[in-house]
Design a protein around this nucleic acid. Structure first.
Length: 396
DNA sequence: TCTGGGGTCCTAGGACCC
DNA sequence: TCTGGGGTCCTAGGACCC
């Protein structure tokens, strides 16, 4: 009955410890063992099963700390191909419920089920069906939050974990929200949480009851407005059906942490070239070009700077992006600074077809675009190791 | 051997233009 | 012989999300 009063019942479906669950679903030997999915020596935890979490292991924790907290954990390298395929199967399960699916990431999506209740039953019944189907077909569990808005549904699913459902009827939204810590709100990370706590704003209810202007002064105009609305459950966001992270992007980039910090210009510049090739070929595959080239430098002490330059016209040409990146790097005039990470990003992406190249006759540049396409073709046929500048031979 | 890699959005100051 | 005021673009930094 109460379901009928819901303007738009929203489900937020969130896989439980997704990477770890997928990694262990056919490994009964790991069922009762702490499991961590994570990268190499300088990496972070990508996913941890609930046994590992009992030791304090969390996503984004440095692997070194995670191993210290839980020496008995089995550490597994991520296998994104498998995650992608499981994720695609789960998405099919969603689409059988409703076409109004907004994919957030590989392991998370919002479903607007207002059009599905006649066929499938109440929103709560739909949540149960989905969890059963995903468990039976994919061998993993998920949690579901059900509410009348996107933001509350998301908070509800978090409270449902693991392997549960939490329903927040419209009349109970503020009673549900106000006791929560401000850090639970979308847009409040570690920094903002700390700042709000220092101001004596600990719960969502605290934030709800101070004047918007005060909030805006504390955290900025935009975020202040947003938090005020979220604290009262005012969330007009609607589900935008989309396939997820494969949307037309505004920027593309790549960065990589060195195995060891380095101050060697040769090594750094070679890395800039490797990253640029990766980014540029992704851009060409996506049919986009961009005008602003940004490099990112992270020093050994973790301080991070960016330097960018906007070109007169958009490009997807490896050599142009690379030249800009190295010029930006050299302009820093670093001497003995040890770098932990470098990155290259191209912003202001537009469809390549919309770029009118002002080709100057005799300009030596205009052969490079064709060279890139030849490299792309060869890479598709023979693999990435087959083609590359001499400075990268043997390194890829 | 503390702290990945892919992104998005906001803020703020200066340049520049009308 | 002080100050305008928008709007837009560019750059840099920072916070956040998954």
């Amino acid at each position: 009955m109460s379901d009928l009063s819901w303007n738009a019942p929203i489900l937020h479906v969130d896989m439980d410890a997704f990477y770890a669950s997928v990694a262990t679903r056919e490994r009964p030997d790991l069922a009762d063992v702490p499991v961590i999915v994570g990268g190499g020596s300088r990496g972070v935890v990508l996913s941890a099963n609930y046994l590992a979490r009992q030791y304090g292991v969390r996503s984004a924790l440095p692997m070194t700390r995670a191993r210290r907290l839980c020496p008995s954990a089995v550490v597994i390298a991520p296998d994104f191909e498998t995650y992608l395929s499981v994720s695609a199967s789960v998405l099919e399960n969603f689409r059988r419920v409703t076409p109004l699916v907004e994919v957030v990431s590989l392991d998370e999506a919002f479903l607007d089920v207002r059009g599905s209740t006649r066929r499938l039953g109440s929103p709560a019944a739909i949540a149960d069906q989905l969890r059963a189907v995903i468990h039976d077909e994919q061998g993993i569990t998920c949690s579901v939050g059900l509410a009348a808005s996107v933001s509350v549904a998301k908070l509800a699913s978090r409270r449902a974990k693991p392997d549960g459902v939490v329903v927040v009827p419209p009349a109970q939204v503020t009673a549900f929200l106000h006791p929560l810590d401000v850090g639970e709100l979308w847009g409040v990370g570690e920094k903002t949480q700390t700042m709000l706590h220092r101001l004596g704003l600990v719960t969502v209810g605290d934030v709800a009851h101070i004047p918007v202007r005060t909030l805006q002064r504390a955290v900025g105009h935009h975020l202040g407005t947003q938090l005020h609305h979220l604290a009262w459950g005012n969330d007009r966001r609607v589900i935008v059906p989309r396939a997820g992270p494969l949307e037309p992007e505004r920027s593309m980039g790549a960065d990589e942490t060195f195995t060891r910090d380095t101050d060697d210009r040769e090594v750094i510049v070679r890395e800039l070239l490797r990253l640029t090739r990766r980014v540029a070929s992704r851009m060409r595959a996506a049919g986009v070009a961009g005008r602003t080239v940004t490099i990112r430098i992270r020093f050994a002490d973790f301080t991070t700077i960016t330097r960018s330059r906007t070109l007169s016209e958009a490009t997807d040409v490896t050599v142009e992006i690379y030249r800009t990146a190295t010029q930006l790097y050299d302009a820093l005039g670093l001497q003995r600074a040890r770098l932990r990470l470098v990155g290259v990003r191209v912003e202001g992406l537009v469809p390549r077809a919309s770029v009118q190249r002002q080709l100057v006759l005799g300009e030596p540049e205009h052969g490079w675009a064709e060279a890139d396409r030849a490299v792309d073709r060869a890479t598709r046929r023979f693999g990435a190791a087959a083609v590359g500048p001499a400075s990268l031979l043997g390194s890829s």
